[in-house]
Design a protein around this nucleic acid. Sequence first.
DNA 1: ACATATCCGATGGGATAAGTAGGAAAGAGG
DNA 2: CCTCTTTCCTACTTATCCCATCGGATATGT
Lengths: 147, 147
Amino acid sequence: MKITFKGDYALKAILDLALHYDSGELVTSFDLSQRIDAPIKFLEQVLLELKKGGFIESRRGNIGGYRLARVPGQITVGDIVRLVDGPSEPIACVNKDYSNCADIKKCIFKGIWQKVDQATSGIIDHITFEDLASQISINQKVLSYSI
Amino acid sequence: MKITFKGDYALKAILDLALHYDSGELVTSFDLSQRIDAPIKFLEQVLLELKKGGFIESRRGNIGGYRLARVPGQITVGDIVRLVDGPSEPIACVNKDYSNCADIKKCIFKGIWQKVDQATSGIIDHITFEDLASQISINQKVLSYSI
DNA sequence: ACATATCCGATGGGATAAGTAGGAAAGAGG
DNA sequence: CCTCTTTCCTACTTATCCCATCGGATATGT
Ligand code: FES
Ligand code: FES
């Protein structure tokens, strides 16, 4: 599991949308890029990917923008990071049949990477953006969240 | 944590040396490359890195080769993979002060990546090559280990 | 001297990361 | 219909890393 800037931006964007979810309002890519400090044109691509992934929806035009396509409690960190940064395993052979090992069945390392993958998944797949959003509103009622 | 071919080769090389540790004999890069199925010239670079890291020692010349510089029980998977593939954290901000977040102290994601890192470390730092070697000799007395 | 190995630096092709640029398409308001 | 805004889409760039390959320098036993 390697988190790139793209994944980082995606997570922050979703979190921001989660914090605006109750209001029902749309958030523009401009506002988003300001708050999460991401280059707007790059962020647009990420948002498009998130849309195609089914996590957000959008409206174009004058008062357009983005909002979550689901309740924050039904989107996990793992969902987002897997979509934009790929699978969580540290090496490809864990979930695929492909490997550079002669006999994948006997490979003694595969089990290690599977454990690592499971441990990672156990964390990122159980944290929802509802969890994160509530954590923020507890810690910093007035302050803008730092993301 | 991302395992590259370099890391993969390094782990297999160390395991092979661990299996030959009791004999006290040196293993050549040629033999190593044959058994672990790695390009010899590339493997040489990896072995050099492992030597500089203090995990193996070598002798040049006619009957030269490599052997472990320590007992297999004192080398962990984490040691090797960290040396050749870098730190185990999924994003740089976990262990460094650097991040692309405005206020790293308030960043809500940092805690997640720290947990992932700890979970990963908890696995790879507790598996030694003695463990792996004994596992192989139990499973496949006659068969050559597949790595 | 010679064969055998490790050591070491340079180079190159391919993939990925992180943007930039430019515009097409859609929607609201006048 | 016209304009302004905002999303959508494609192509391009620049840098960095990965995975080697090559050519030789250096050391060592016989
Ligand atoms: S099958 Fe994945 S490292 Fe061997
Ligand atoms: S400080 Fe690491 S993601 Fe925010």
